[in-house]
Amino acid sequence: MKLLRCPINGLRPIQEFYYGGEYRPMPDPDASTDAQWADYVFNRDGAPGVRLEWWYHLASGVWFLAEHDTARDVFLRTFLFEELGQG
């Protein structure tokens, strides 16, 4: 069984989680052109590698971030949004 570590509830089976997509900072909607906005809305970094993703623990309603290696399907670390940028 594949496990994922919720920053609040600890290791749980992956079926308890919902994948929320790649983490992408939102550009300022008022300052961006239509093309920049479309790029934000639609385009993704689909190539394999390590990147940040949004995950949601269904049972407890916790949204958090996960560093996921999409080539090997390994989760390197998970943490709450507040801790972003704190290494």
Partner: peptide, 17 residues
């Protein structure tokens, strides 16, 4: 494998795998 090829020419796409 498309995202690996499009990144060779710097094209952005909405494709996820």
């Amino acid at each position: 494998y498309t995202p690996r090829i499009t990144s060779m020419v710097g094209l952005r796409t909405p494709i996820t795998v």
